[in-house]
Design a binder for these strands. Sequence first.
DNA 1: TATTGGATCGCC
DNA 2: GCGATCCAATAG
Length: 194
Amino acid sequence: MNLDFYKKPTLEVAESLIGKVLVVKNKNNVLSGKIVETEAYIGSNDKACHASWRKRVSCENLWKGGGIIYVYLTYGMHYMLNIVTEKDNFPSAVLIRAVEPLEGIDIMVQNRHTENIANLTSGPAKLTKAFGINKSFNGKSLLGRGIYVEDRNLPVCKIESSKRVGVDYAEEPWRSIEWRFYQSNSLFVSKRVE
DNA sequence: TATTGGATCGCC
DNA sequence: GCGATCCAATAG
């Protein structure tokens, strides 16, 4: 995907990322997966978006404009992968919540310490562990060779939406706004639907 | 310096 | 259902 793709409105990016392929390359391996679940976090008014929290050094990348990665640690042990969107100085991002493994499945099995394929990448923390994504990816460009998204024209049956997961602490309307998108027939969409 | 709150997962 | 586990923003 080129820079224009990421500079678009966040909801548009979140929905059009469904069916695209996330690719991570390191020294010897290529890991890839079809994106089947995303969530949009938009602006400093969105009470679930980190940009609305009091200033934190760790989320400064949200302001740097579309086309880069924002990675953070939550619950003391889980990395979350976000794709920053829109223009510079407008804090917004799309959280990648689930993918379907395509290439490098043997590596993912090692990283996740499980043989259960359906459990490899079916959640935001699971996929970062499977792909080996950690804090060193924070701020990286999606236009380079290490990590990027490409369109392989994979079929997407139907895209559904729902409220976002794990943001019950936020005020209305941010708590229940339907900014989560997922491919309805995918086995890899994380559970916890209403 | 101490407290606390998370965009979760996996095992009980 | 609940414990694991840690960073950094707050309060004191």
